[in-house]
């Protein structure tokens, strides 16, 4: 079976993240918090079906520390 195409990946700005954990509440399927409350991304990339979830996690971050980076626009 063909692998679904990845639309990008989730990226955490560790300098901005203050550990509110909203991203985990929004998308527990894609990430979890480590012992310092910093999100650890559990997926290598975001499939088209995961995209709404990833965007919800990005929106939920109160300090804009999480973003979706597309393959064509590296950090």
């Amino acid at each position: 079976m063909e692998q679904p195409e990845k639309t990008g990946h989730l990226s955490v700005d560790r300098g901005r993240c203050e550990g509110y954990g909203m991203c985990e509440q929004a998308a527990p399927e894609l990430l979890h918090l480590d012992e310092d409350d910093v999100p650890v991304i559990d997926v290598a990339g975001i499939s088209p079906t995961q995209k709404p979830l990833a965007e919800a996690a990005v929106r939920a971050c109160p300090v804009a520390a999480l973003s979706v980076r597309t393959a064509s626009a590296p950090a």
Partner: peptide, 13 residues
């Protein structure tokens, strides 16, 4: 989850 009552971003509460 994504209300703006605490602001948002750099100057978020």
């Amino acid at each position: 989850l994504d209300h703006l009552g605490f602001g948002y971003g750099l100057h978020g509460c």
